[in-house]
Amino acid sequence: MAWLAFTLYLTGVLVAFGLRTWLHRRRTGDTGHRHSHPPIGTAAWWAQILLAAGLLGGFAAPLLDATGLLAPVPILDHSWLHIVGLIAAVAGFIGIPAAQHAMGASWRIGVNAAERTTLVTAGAFRFVRNPIFTAMLTATAGITAMTPTWPQLLVLAAVFAGIELQVRVVEEPYLQATHGPAYVAYTRRTGRFLPGIGKAGHEISA
């Protein structure tokens, strides 16, 4: 199961980041990558660190498990949970490129505060504001259920914390500043990561 998890994760990352970047550049002439360098110790800096740690740890933990260097957490080591994890991981890794495709030319990795893109509210974005991150969390949770070691649990925690920070302190303030009332109205009718959950009751502030 650990080798399957590693292969699935590797394939998912290559499709979600490598293939998507290539397709986006081919269609628009732009990679879509917007890499910033926030001051060390800020929430935005921690978001980048945690997401990077989660991405790299997502490779390492299943690989170490597969080679027998890690042992699963006994309470989580059940065949039925591994199967549920496999289903969740596959769904998540399918959901990531699907949500990226829905963004069209507006797809970005990172934020350029001086750039204005179209506010996407169609497709999966009708139901949640961050379907790509929802799919990422689903995939990571699935890989964790497939290979439930302590390092993999830390990977899941890092991805969750990094996404929360990235969305709340980087992307939401940027989108509100860029799209104003249209974005505020969108946040009031659409959940952050799950349908109906995390709707804004007031304007989002930086």
Rank of each mutant, 00 (worst) to 15 (best):
L8K: 03
T147M: 04
M146S: 10
L64M: 11
L137N: 06
V170Q: 11
A44S: 14
A206V: 07
A122H: 15
D30T: 02
I163A: 10
A5L: 09
G191Q: 03
L194F: 15
I83V: 14
V13F: 03
A177D: 13
L10G: 10
G58F: 04
A102C: 03
G92D: 02
H33M: 12
W46E: 04
L69C: 04
I75W: 13
M103E: 14
P74K: 03
H78G: 05
A114W: 10
F17I: 15
I94Y: 01
V84M: 08
F193Y: 11
Q100A: 12
S36Y: 03
F193R: 02
T118D: 15
F125T: 05
A98M: 14
A66H: 09
A185H: 07
D77R: 02
F93S: 00
V155F: 12
Q48R: 14
V167G: 02
H37V: 12
F6Y: 12
E172F: 05
D30M: 09
T7S: 14
L156T: 08
H35M: 15
W22T: 07
R192L: 02
F127N: 10
W45V: 15
T140H: 10
A98D: 06
G18H: 05
L81A: 12
A102V: 03
E171L: 02
S79N: 13
